[in-house]
Amino acid sequence: MSTDTAPEVARPSEAPRQPDGSSRVRRELVRFMPLIILAVLLVLLSLRNPDLLTQRSLTTMADSAAPLMVLAVGITVVILCGGIDLSIGALASFASVLTALWVPSMSGAVVVPVVLVCALAGVVQGWIHIAARVPSFIVTLGGMSLWTGLALAFSGASTVAVTDIAALRWAFTRIGGTVPSALVIALGVVVVLGAVMRFTPFGRWVASVGHAEPAARLAGLPVSMVKIAAFGVSGACAGLAGVLLVARTFSGAPTLGESLLLPAVAAVIVGGTAITGGHGGLFRTVVGALIVVLLRTGLSLIGVDAGFEPIFYGVLIIIAVSVTIDRSKVAVLK
């Protein structure tokens, strides 16, 4: 934590920042803020409406949280590298269409090719970003258009129903009658990815690239491969999220995942991962996703118009970014 300003190429216009007392307090506060917010929200909402903590309402929330969490965890890896992936919503829609189209021939095994295709899609985007040196948000904005177009073309611009409901039952059932399997899958993704980040060099490489890419490059890290891999992970997660969406709605649709981009980005940033890269982690994103889901449920419990939901995400993203962004890292803000 205390090394965040160290590897910086010092900007003459910026005063060198020392981690003095007040900024350390602020940093610690920022660090634990997501957990505090989550706890306060939980208490306030359950006081307001005790039904929130019933098993029924909790499992419903978990069902809606699972795809969001998977998406958000994937994009976290990209954001940790300092990039962004705007294509995840479109890619999840594309995945949902592929899943719905392929279930008749592949049954439950459909998840493997879908996730692979989406991982490949992510890798391709990452490779273009690296090879042509195009900013990641442009590549993935282009990807957004491409995957949406393909999803529309493959599905004939309509919802593709899944008739073989049993094939995807594993992704939308209750384990032991209580625990939603989708949540278990989502947490499984977090644990596996978290273990990879923790126990292999990949996690450190990602953080180093996000902290100071030139330094990482000079130190001999495989910067390009790390970034491409990050986009691959993000793509794979989008694919899995698409499968989870199909399992829940029994259909694939070319716009199914579109509305998940904003909440996913919000979850990452609200969780405390800095958009400038380097800072943050998967666990924070889990907390962020829970905050977003709680807020969404809370808003409808209080009876707020659904139109306020996007406004909420917008304001949330802007506020959270302005708190967590590392301004010493961006010399000229574009």
Binding site: I84, F137, L262, V265, I275, G307, F308, E309, P310, I311, F312, Y313, G314, V315, I317, I318, V321, S322, I325, R327, V330, L333, K334
Partner: peptide
């Protein structure tokens, strides 16, 4: 002092709402 792609993403959401 936030990159414009994020502020405008936020404003996009606000406008939609």
């Amino acid at each position: 002092r936030i990159p414009s792609f994020l502020t405008t993403l936020g404003v996009y959401a606000i406008g939609l709402g």
